[in-house]
Amino acid sequence: KEWNEKELQKLHCAFASLPKHKPGFWSEVAAAVGSRSPEECQRKYMENP
């Protein structure tokens, strides 16, 4: 399903605030978004950083 504005906001906010070198980075991003898997978050971010 399409990403909504709130999900995208959470994605970018989590990406900006979490340490990128940490193992499980995308899992933490997904936990912050709440409604998406780590894979979905990574794919979406890579599509549209």
Rank of each mutant, 00 (worst) to 15 (best):
P23K: 09
W3D: 03
P38Y: 03
A31E: 14
R36C: 05
P19I: 02
G24I: 06
F25A: 05
R43K: 15
L11D: 01
K6F: 07
R43M: 11
W26V: 04
P38C: 06
S35H: 11
C41V: 04
C41M: 01
N4D: 08
E5T: 15
C13D: 15
S17V: 06
P23W: 05
K22D: 11
P38D: 07
E39S: 11
Q9E: 15
S27P: 14
P23Y: 06
A32M: 15
R43E: 14
G34M: 03
W26C: 03
E5W: 06
A14F: 04
W3R: 02
A16K: 14
P49W: 04
A30L: 00
E39F: 06
Q42W: 09
F15P: 02
C41G: 01
K6N: 13
W3Y: 02
F25G: 05
S35W: 04
E39K: 06
V29C: 07
A31S: 12
N4C: 02
N4Y: 02
R36K: 14
L11I: 02
P38F: 04
S27L: 11
A16Q: 08
E47A: 10
E40I: 00
A32G: 09
Q9N: 07
K10W: 03
K1G: 04
W3V: 02
M46K: 12
F25V: 07
P23C: 11
E39Y: 10
Y45R: 06
F25P: 03
A31H: 13
C41P: 01
W26I: 03
A31V: 09
E39P: 04
H12A: 14
K20L: 10
G34Q: 06
L8S: 10
Y45N: 05
M46L: 10
E40M: 03
R43C: 08
P23T: 09
G24P: 03
L18Q: 10
E2Y: 14
S35R: 11
R43G: 11
P23A: 14
W3H: 02
H12D: 11
C41S: 01
E7V: 00
A30Q: 02
L11A: 01
L18S: 12
E28I: 07
Q42E: 15
E39R: 06
V29T: 02
V33Y: 00
S35E: 11
Y45Q: 12
S27N: 15
W26P: 03
L18I: 08
E7Q: 02
K22W: 03
A16F: 07
W3M: 01
A14Y: 06
N4A: 06
A31I: 11
S35N: 12
K20I: 09
V29L: 04
E2H: 07
V33I: 07
E5S: 07
S17W: 01
K22A: 09
S17A: 13
E5M: 12
A32F: 08
H12N: 08
P49A: 11
V33R: 01
K44I: 08
K20Q: 15
S37C: 05
P19M: 05
Q9G: 06
K10S: 10
P23V: 11
L18D: 06
A30S: 12
P38G: 10
E39L: 06
F25C: 04
S27K: 15
K44C: 08
K44R: 12
A16D: 03
E2C: 05
K6C: 08
Q9I: 07
P49G: 05
S17C: 05
W26F: 01
K20D: 08
F15N: 05
F15A: 14
